[in-house]
Design a protein around this nucleic acid. Structure first.
Length: 328
DNA sequence: AAATCTAGCAACCGCCATTGC
DNA sequence: CGCAATGGCGGTTGCTAGATT
C-alpha cells in the first residue's frame, strides 16, 4: 500500500479494518479536527483522507446503488442551473455525496445527454458537432451507436486529428528545425505531415506565430505549398484511417528532393509550389481525408472557407442529416 | 485462454476559503 | 494584520472488474 514519502502516512484504498476503526471512533467521540481523529483513532492516515472516507463512504445515511429516475432528473436540472457545483447539487439529494454525483454525471449522464444530441455543457441541442468542446466531441464519438452519425462525424474527427498533427508538427519543429530524421521509420506519417506544408515554416516563425486550430486551417489556404502532381494516385501504402478505411492520396514526386539529408528512393520528398485557389491544399486535403460518401455540403473545409450563418445552419444540421430534433 | 480495452468509482491533489492564534 | 492549520470543493488519477478482441 502506498504511503506518503514525507510523513509515512498510508494512502490508497481503505481496508475493512481501517473502516471499522474510523466508524468506531466516530461513534464514540465528538469531532474536533480531522487531524485529531486520525491521531487519536490510531489511523495512519492524514486527516483529509479520514474526512473523505467518512463523508463519502462511511457516515450513516449514505445512499448507494443506482440513481433513480427522479434523482437523475434532479441532477440534470440542478447542473443546468448551477454548473458543476456538486456540493450544492448534493444538498438537494439526501444520502448522496457530491463525489457520487460528480462521478455519476461524468460517467453516465453526460453520455446520456450526448446520445440525445444535447450539449452537456449548455444543455441545449447540439446544432453542429464543431460547436462542442473537444472532450465532448470525443465522448460523442465514443457513445454514438448511429451508423449515419458515425460516418458524418468521422469527417469532423478527421479535422480534429489534423489539428492534433499540426500541434505535433509545431512541437517537433521547435525541438529541431530539421525534423526529417524522426520519420525514417514512419514515412507514411512523414508524408501526411509534409502534405500540410509544415516543413517550410521555420522554428522562429513557429515560435512567433504558433499554430492554433483556426489558424492551422487558415494556413491551408492559397499560399500553402502543394504537391506538383497531385492528381495521381498515392504511391506508398494508403493511409489507414477510421476503422480501417483507407483514403487515397496524391503521389509524391520522386524526382525532386526537398531536403538533402534523407532520401529513401521510394519516398523522396516532393517540391513545393504555391497553389491557385482551385488546386489549393485545402481542396487537396479535402479529397485526401473526407469520405466521398459524406454529404458534400457539410465538408469541414467548405465550412471554413465559406463562413455560414450559424443560426441558419444550426437549425438544420442534425435534422437534415440524421433526423434528430434540432430545437428541443 | 490470454491480452487488451473500457467504464465505473474510490481516492488523491491542488486550490481557495475560513478559522484561530 | 499576518500566518499557519484545517476544511471544502472540483478536477483528475489510478485501480479493478467486466467486456471485447
Amino acid at each position: 500500500m502506498a504511503t506518503s514519502p514525507e510523513n509515512g502516512v498510508k494512502k490508497g484504498a481503505w481496508s475493512k479494518e481501517e473502516d471499522q476503526i474510523l466508524i468506531h471512533y466516530m461513534g464514540n467521540h465528538d469531532l474536533e479536527t480531522w487531524k485529531t481523529v486520525s491521531e487519536q483513532a490510531g489511523l495512519n492516515r492524514c486527516g483529509k483522507s479520514c474526512r473523505l472516507r467518512w463523508t463519502n463512504y462511511l457516515r450513516p445515511g449514505i445512499k448507494r446503488g443506482e440513481f433513480s429516475a427522479d434523482e437523475e432528473a434532479t441532477i440534470i436540472s440542478l447542473q443546468r442551473e448551477h454548473g458543476n457545483k456538486w456540493s450544492r447539487i448534493a444538498a438537494h439529494l439526501p444520502g448522496r455525496t457530491d463525489n457520487d454525483i460528480k462521478n455519476f454525471w461524468n460517467t453516465r449522464l453526460k453520455k446520456k445527454l450526448l446520445r440525445r444530441v444535447i450539449n452537456p455543457t449548455t444543455h441545449k441541442p447540439i446544432p453542429d458537432f464543431n460547436l462542442l468542446n473537444f472532450a465532448d466531441q470525443a465522448q460523442l464519438l465514443s457513445v454514438s451507436d448511429n451508423p449515419n452519425l458515425e460516418v458524418a462525424l468521422a469527417n469532423n474527427a478527421n479535422e480534429l486529428i489534423k489539428n492534433q498533427v499540426k500541434v505535433l508538427q509545431n512541437m517537433l519543429q521547435i525541438i529541431n528545425p530539421n525534423p526529417l530524421q524522426y520519420f525514417q521509420g514512419n514515412l507514411d506519417l512523414y508524408e501526411l505531415i509534409q502534405l500540410n506544408g509544415f516543413f517550410d515554416r521555420t522554428a522562429t516563425d513557429l515560435a512567433l506565430n504558433p499554430l492554433q486550430p483556426q489558424s492551422m486551417i487558415a494556413g491551408f489556404s492559397n499560399e500553402s505549398p502543394v504537391l506538383l502532381n497531385q492528381q495521381q494516385p498515392y504511391t506508398s501504402n494508403s493511409l489507414p484511417f477510421f476503422d480501417g478505411e483507407t483514403i487515397p492520396g496524391p503521389v509524391l514526386d520522386d524526382n525532386i528532393i526537398h531536403s538533402d539529408n534523407i532520401c529513401n528512393s521510394d519516398y523522396c520528398l516532393p517540391s513545393l509550389v504555391s497553389a491557385a485557389p482551385e488546386s489549393s491544399t485545402v481542396k487537396q486535403m479535402e479529397s485526401f481525408y473526407v469520405s466521398t460518401e459524406a454529404p458534400e455540403q457539410y465538408s469541414v473545409f467548405d465550412a471554413l472557407e465559406n463562413p455560414v450563418d450559424i443560426d441558419e445552419a444550426c437549425g438544420s444540421f442534425w435534422k437534415d442529416n440524421f433526423g434528430f430534433p434540432a430545437d428541443g
